[in-house]
Design a protein around this nucleic acid. Structure first.
Lengths: 155, 155
DNA sequence: CCCGTACTTGAAGTGGACTTCAACTGCAGT
DNA sequence: ACTGCAGTTGAAGTCCACTTCAAGTACGGG
């Protein structure tokens, strides 16, 4: 099986690191596409690999498939993304990461300030405070208190 | 209804910020418990509030309910946790947060190094590299490459 | 004692990102 | 032509942390 310009499912799976089932899922979600043989089997253009790399990267940064679809739609259709495309997108990601970092640092600092006191009082403790009911009148001007932004890993 | 030493579901819900359904769920999961009236209704000891504060704090730090159950089991049964209990636990959490921070910073730096090049090549790009197949022989000594550690918020 | 509100239960639903299954069909080497 | 692996489909299952639902029961002030 010599290298050609079209790839089968298993080739793409192997080379992208995604399971074949994930590829079908992404196709159904409109994230990638494929041509078909006369018999109905998928054949992928090599460009799908770059697209998949983009998807994995975005997902590593913490974007949902919905958000990824949106960003993919903002990419040039057909042509390879230019450096400025990538600049725009990655700036976007960078912001997202910075937000996460900030939230995480705030949480850690709050934890540090709790370590000495052994508090965990419902009223006072920033770590255990529900969703900052205290200061939450309505979208406060300052900053969100606790990170609804962070969560546990996907199993 | 004067303040008593036992609390009803709705009181605990109100004072803890958890929905009543969440309380029942936590009970089923063995995270909290309650006595019952002769008619079968739940009555909570006030100590459940502290326990719930702990649960929310742990969950804010990113622990799964499974992990939280484990940590709760490590807490003194009956007596109020001492400062040294809290010290131990919070140190644990601190580690967790630091790991997340580290992973996130690594990712951001990787992103920064990608911004200039517009790469996203499957082979070279750290951001899009599956789960670091490159260096993954088997649990490497150095450090995990990409954060399976971070994920998107629970909607 | 009455009545409205609060509470009870198990079962089923939610959502995100997939995976697994069963039953079938295509493709390519010999 | 045969054979066996690779591919196809829709439906259903998985995981987590809950929420919602329906149908029925308890509590407590008047």
């Amino acid at each position: 099986m010599e290298p050609t310009d079209v790839l089968t499912v298993s080739e793409v799976a192997e080379r992208s690191g995604f399971a074949a089932s994930a590829l079908r899922y992404y196709e159904k979600q409109g994230l990638i596409d494929a041509t078909r043989t006369s018999g109905g089997q998928r054949r992928y253009a090599r460009s799908v690999l770059r697209r998949l790399a983009f998807i994995r990267a975005a997902s590593n940064v913490g974007l949902s498939l919905d958000e990824i679809r949106t960003e993919l739609a903002g990419l040039p259709k057909g042509r390879t993304p230019t450096k400025s495309d990538w600049h725009r997108i990655s700036g976007h990601w960078r912001t997202r990461l910075d937000e996460q970092l900030e939230a995480l640092e705030a949480l850690r600092d709050k934890l540090d300030s709790c370590i000495g006191c052994g508090c965990l009082s419902l009223k006072q403790c920033g770590i255990s405070n529900p969703a900052d009911k205290a200061a939450a009148s309505d979208d406060a001007p300052g900053a969100a208190y606790l990170p609804a932004l962070l969560r546990r890993p996907p199993h």
